[in-house]
């Protein structure tokens, strides 16, 4: 009887061990569908969306000045150089728009509004925002969000020449940058690590958010849980409390930020 009992117990343990193992090896989870879109497909999707937005959104125009291009190149080169192995070919574009915003589209396409550049005090703060957006790219948050919103089939239909209305909707959703709280936290963490690796103080993010908070007024703390983005306060705290590695050495960009802003702001303000 004891042996029979042991045998039964063993059967039970094996049964549940196998069930767990099977679901670990073949996970069934909505976010995993992101794996169904290869990086090549993501790049292709990014290209289609970017072309569509640039062609069909009135006033959505890129800005180029030698000073601006050089500054963006310097900042992005420093950050991208520290990512390590990446499958993405990053493209960073500055758009003429007074809003303080930056967003990521599939395939490593990052857009920054000129309003954000004007709002930033220096190149370090822009680097902090860019590092956060790179976090969204590397963690494949945009594709995951689009799959969640539209379903994998629609994404594939767009890739194979789906209708223009759906493509426009897809673009709007991709721009709206409403990531869930966990994704924002992941991107923040990734961004802070990247800043530290690049010799840029993670506190730049805190400085940026502090001013943003001052500008937009303070929120009731209790609202934090309801927000899709972590509240400014928690982001400021995380950036201030970030533990720098022992070999951290801050390296100045040597960019005259005021000159960069003046290069594209003349006559606009």
């Amino acid at each position: 009887m004891k042996w029979a009992l042991l045998k039964d117990l063993l059967k039970l343990l094996i049964l549940f061990g196998v069930i767990w193992g099977v679901f670990v090896i073949f996970p069934i989870f909505p976010d995993k569908s992101v794996l169904e879109i290869s990086l090549e497909k993501e790049e292709q999707l990014g290209e289609i969306i970017v072309d569509n937005i640039l062609a069909n959104t009135p006033g959505f125009e890129e800005i180029h000045t030698p000073a601006l291009d050089s500054a963006i190149f310097k900042i992005s080169e420093r950050l991208i150089g520290q990512i390590g192995l990446t499958d993405y070919q990053y493209t960073i574009k500055v758009i003429d728009n007074t809003e303080i915003n930056a967003f990521t589209l599939p395939g490593g396409n990052i857009f920054i509004y000129s309003g954000l550049l004007r709002f930033a005090d220096n190149a370090d703060e822009v680097a902090a925002v860019l590092a956060h957006e790179i976090g969204h790219v590397e963690k494949r948050h945009v594709v995951s969000k689009l799959i969640k919103e539209f379903g994998i089939n629609l994404i594939f239909s767009i890739l194979t020449g789906g209708d223009a209305v759906m493509l426009s909707e897809l673009g709007k959703t991709a721009i709206s940058t409403v990531f869930d709280r966990q994704q924002e936290k992941e991107a923040d963490q990734y961004g802070l690590d990247l800043l530290a690796d690049s010799g840029i103080s993670p506190k730049s993010l805190a400085a940026f958010f502090r001013r943003l908070k001052r500008e937009s007024g303070s929120y009731d703390e209790s609202l934090e849980i309801l927000m899709t983005h972590p509240h400014y306060n928690s982001r400021i705290k995380a950036s201030i409390q970030y533990e720098l590695p022992e070999d951290y050495k801050e390296v100045d960009f040597g960019i005259d930020w005021e000159r960069v802003i003046n290069s594209f702001s003349t006559g606009k303000e």
């Binding site: 549940f16 069930i19 767990w20 099977v22 679901f23 670990v24 090896i25 996970p27 989870f29």
Partner: peptide, 12 residues
Amino acid sequence: EVNDYYIGYIWM
């Protein structure tokens, strides 16, 4: 963090 072990555990 949410990983495959956690998802597998939920199913189990």
